[in-house]
Amino acid sequence: MTKILEIKNLHVEVKGKEILKGINLTLDLGKINALMGPNGSGKSTLVNTVMGHPKYVVTKGKILFNGKDITKLSPDKRAKLGIFLSFQHPREISGVSVSKFLKTSEKELNPKFSFSEFKKNLKEKREILEISENMTERYLNVGFSGGEKKKNEILQMLILNPKLIILDETDSGLDIDSLKIIAKGVGEIMNKEKCILIITHYKRILEYIKPDKVFIMIKGKIVLEGGNKLAEELEKKGYGWIEKE
């Protein structure tokens, strides 16, 4: 199996406080992974560190992407390598329409950018996610409902077509219909050349996107790793069960 992401003994601080305390995690190409854990366990810190947020300081350890050390790369360079993070709280950028933003990103990421291809692709991907043309002409996330913001993240994912896709609580606050549409979008992009990492509290999304592997994170460490069944067990017993063990 080909490793796409390797995290080795990763320690991360935010404002001088250590949040991640030695994470080891390997993700394989062609697999869907879930990372679960209680609030405050460090899941978001981990994925933001993988994307390169400057607030998260790596004090020890490293992150390899396709064997290349990316620990010190800026977020845009990581995006260019094919890493994508669907934000838990997407930012609102006033005055910049979704389509203008997508075009600007796509131009950066795709050396063979063609406007007519882009337009065609945008229409196709919009339709998969049941997003109206009107929405892509609105300012990026400004005045969007929670569901619209998440759909918009998935639209960006489909357009930019990354290799490693990290979904940070994309399911939170979504109704069933929106969840189904998002699962459809994820299903659309997944193939053996991609890898997905889903961050979630709940098993619900995993009924629509079946993980091959589940990681449990508590207090800044990966404490357990298993197959699809682990999520179900967790749902029944809660995190207390793991903490006791």
């Binding site: 390169g52 977020p75 845009d76 995006a79 934000f87 950028i93 933003f101 950066e108 930019l160």
Partner: peptide, 11 residues
């Protein structure tokens, strides 16, 4: 905001 946009490939 910068991080969000940079995570989509914008320097």
């Amino acid at each position: 905001d910068l991080f969000y946009l940079m995570s989509r490939g914008l320097p």
